Computed example of a mutant assay.
Amino acid sequence: MSLPTIDVTSAKRLLDQGAVLIDIREADERAREHVPGARHNPLSRLSAMELQSATAVIFHCRSGARTAANAQRLGAASECDAYILEGGIEAWKKAGLPVTVDVRQPIEIMRQVQIVAGCLVVAGIALGVWVAPVFLALSAFVGAGLVLAGTTGWCGMAKLLALMPWNRRVRKALAA
């Protein structure tokens, strides 16, 4: 079953009529930026929602790709009409609709992984070219880690970054 997509204007109209907006992003993504009033039900812990008064549910992620890829699971988790917000929170912001932003929160872990991995690859190549070829192994090691993360869903760098002091505030907020 594929859920229909809905544009931001139509979504806003449905929300004004009693629909519920559901953010399926992970907590670290939502902590930095979210739509006010949207309920949080992360995809990794998706559960059936008790929405007795809702006329419909509208699921959103960052860009719409994650919701589209998981449409069957999302549809099964809802008991009423369900839609996917086309373009996700990015389209919501582009339409000028309100978004709560907390810049004190760190950027999401996967973006941190991308930044660190990219820096390590560039450093490995630069050091390999200008210092000693053995430093090229650093780039190979990071590449192998990214392949492992992509094939298994387990990312050691993300686990390590989650322990960093700037990310502890998000973890403490989630535990409360």
Rank of each mutant, 00 (worst) to 15 (best):
Asp23Glu: 08
Leu120Trp: 10
His40Cys: 04
Ala173Asn: 02
Arg104Gln: 13
Phe141Ile: 13
Ala19Trp: 04
Leu146Thr: 10
Asp81Leu: 14
Val8Phe: 07
Val142Gln: 03
Leu85Lys: 00
Thr152Gln: 09
Asp81Lys: 15
Arg25Ile: 01
Asn41Ile: 06
Ser44Asn: 13
Pro133Ala: 12
Val147Lys: 04
Asn167Cys: 10
Leu74Gly: 02
Asp23Cys: 06
Ser63Glu: 04
Arg39Gln: 11
Lys94Cys: 01
Gly118Glu: 09
Val20Leu: 14
Arg169Val: 11
Asn167Phe: 11
Leu161Val: 07
Ile84Arg: 06
Leu136Met: 13
Leu14Thr: 01
Leu74Gln: 08
Asn167Glu: 09
Arg66His: 06
Gly87Ser: 07
Pro98Asn: 10
Gln114Thr: 02
Ala123Tyr: 06
Val170Asp: 01
Leu160Lys: 01
Ala126Asn: 08
Ala77Phe: 01
Gly145Ser: 11
Ala65Ser: 09
Met164Glu: 05
Ala76Gly: 11
Arg62Ser: 08
Ala48Cys: 08
Ser2Gln: 13
Ala69Gln: 14
Ala126Ile: 15
Ser2Ile: 11
Glu79Trp: 00
Gly37Val: 04
Phe135His: 05
Ser44Arg: 10
Gly150Pro: 05
Ile109Gly: 01
Ala158Val: 04
Leu14Val: 01
Ala65Phe: 03
Ile115Gln: 15
Lys12Asn: 13
Ala123Thr: 15
Ser139Met: 04
Ala126Val: 15
Ala76Tyr: 01
Glu50Pro: 12
Glu86Val: 00
Ala48Arg: 14
Thr9Trp: 02
Glu50Ile: 13
Thr9Glu: 14
Arg25Tyr: 05
Trp154Arg: 13
Val131Cys: 06
Arg62Leu: 11
Ala69Glu: 14
Thr55Met: 00
Val142Tyr: 00
Ala56Gln: 09
Ile84Tyr: 02
Gln72Lys: 06
Ala82Asp: 10
Ala56Lys: 12
Ser139Glu: 07
Ile125Arg: 00
Ser2Tyr: 09
Cys155Lys: 11
Ile22Ser: 00
Phe141Leu: 14
Glu86Leu: 09
Gln114Trp: 00
Leu160Ser: 00
Arg62Val: 07
Arg13Val: 08
Gln105Met: 15
Glu33Leu: 15
Val142Thr: 04
Ala162Thr: 10
Leu51Glu: 15
Lys94Asn: 11
Ile89His: 05
Pro106Trp: 02
Ala158Glu: 06
Glu90Tyr: 04
Ser10His: 12
Val134Phe: 12
Ala31Cys: 08
Gly143Trp: 05
Thr152Asp: 08
Thr5Ala: 13
Gln105Ser: 14
Gly64Asn: 07
Ala176Ile: 08
Ala91Cys: 12
Asn167Lys: 05
Pro42Tyr: 02
Ala95Trp: 12
Ser139Gly: 13
Ala48Glu: 11
Thr100Val: 14
Ser78Glu: 02
Val129Lys: 13
Leu136Ala: 09
Ala65Thr: 08
Leu174Gln: 11
Val8Cys: 10
Gly64Thr: 08
Gln52Ala: 13
Ser2Trp: 10
Leu148Gly: 08
Asp28Glu: 07
Val116Ser: 01
